[in-house]
Structures are given as C-alpha cells and as structure tokens.
C-alpha cells in the first residue's frame, strides 16, 4: 500500500494500492490504465494554481490544473497511450456548514469542477465518482481490480 499525502502524486503498479487519508474538501483523483498495469493518485487541495502565492514553490499535486496534467504525463511516460486511461475520484465534501467559511465551503465543489475540466481536456472518461456531501473520506484504489474503496465516518465501506 502506498500512502498519498496532501498535495502528493504517487503511482502504483499492478500489485500495489494507493491510499489517501481524510479527504475533506480535497479530492482524490485516480487515473489508471484500463489494462490494469499502472495507476496514479493525486490528493488535490485547490482548484487552480493561480491562487498560489506568486513565486512560491508548490507540489504539482496541490492544484487540479497542475495535478491532472502531471498525472497524465507520469503514466504516459510508461508508454501507455492516452486512449487507455480512465479515471475515478472521491472527495470534495463540504465539511463545515458555515457562512463564515464561505470560501472554504465552496472549495470542494470547485475542486471537483476543475478536475472534471482537466480530465475532459485529455478526453479521459470518468468511470465512477463519490463526491460532495458533508463527510470526510479515506480511500484506497487497487490497481489490479480498478476498485476504489471508500470509508466515511457514518457509512459502511463502499466500493466504486
């Protein structure tokens, strides 16, 4: 099992799985080879890299518009054609119902939207998603089966 931290991008081969802990408004985006040889996961925190402090260094996995292109690049570097790529995603919840956190409150939805736009750019179909709601998620993706397993605080583990 490979742990994917906040704003990280990691790859897994067919014997491995990718896990990320406690997605709130963050989104775990997975791009995988339909032939199940390789998969990659990004723990995306924010929609657009233009909101980063100018000149600051950041991990490419932090923003949807840098994470998805990087994930695609990494996977394609193993000679996988774009047409073999598929995607699954989970997260983008609204953790706190509060007007004080309006900016934060909408981050989840904006993350989901931004990721979908990026996937669309590369023509990568979204096979399954578990997004929105008000609960955090811990997720694990198994390369060999393409199954994404999702745990939340008040629901049985779910597989998509």
């Amino acid at each position: 099992m490979i742990l994917v931290g906040l704003s990280e991008i990691k790859l897994a081969n067919k014997e491995q799985s990718l896990r990320t802990i406690g997605l709130g408004s963050c989104v775990g985006a997975i791009i995988y080879d339909i032939d199940r040889t390789i998969a990659g996961m990004a723990h995306i925190m924010l929609p657009e890299s233009k909101i980063a402090k100018p000149g600051s260094h950041f991990l490419l996995g932090k923003f949807a518009d840098t994470a998805i292109p990087e994930l695609v690049r990494l996977i394609c570097s193993y000679d996988i054609p774009l047409t073999r790529l598929r995607s699954k995603m989970a997260g983008g919840a609204e953790m706190f119902n509060s007007s004080r956190l309006t900016m934060m409150g909408s981050i989840g939805q904006r993350n989901i939207q931004a990721i979908k736009e990026q996937l669309h750019r590369f023509d990568i179909p979204i096979i399954a998603e578990d997004v929105g709601g008000h609960s955090g998620r811990t997720i694990e993706f198994y390369t060999h089966s393409s199954i994404l397993s999702i745990r939340t605080v008040n629901r049985d583990e779910k597989q998509i």
């Binding site: 906040l6 704003s7 802990i21 406690g22 997605l23 709130g24 408004s25 963050c26 925190m45 924010l46 909101i51 980063a52 402090k53 600051s56 260094h57 950041f58 991990l59 932090k62 919840a93 953790m95 706190f96 119902n97 509060s98 004080r100 956190l101 934060m104 981050i107 609960s135 955090g136 998620r137 811990t138 745990r151 939340t152 605080v153």
Partner: peptide, 27 residues
C-alpha cells in the same frame, strides 16, 4: 476567536480544512 464549529469526522479530514487555506501560501 470565531465561535467554534462542531465536526464529527475523520481527524485528517477536519484538519485538512485548515491546511487547505495555509497551503495557498506554503508547502
């Protein structure tokens, strides 16, 4: 300090909400 908000959830998901805002400025 703002009035507190309750959340019953995975610890990482709760802390993540604070980290998101900080992550705009720093790694």
């Amino acid at each position: 300090q703002s009035p507190p908000i309750l959340s019953i959830d995975i610890a990482a998901a709760i802390l993540g909400e604070g980290l998101i805002e900080l992550s705009m400025e720093t790694d």
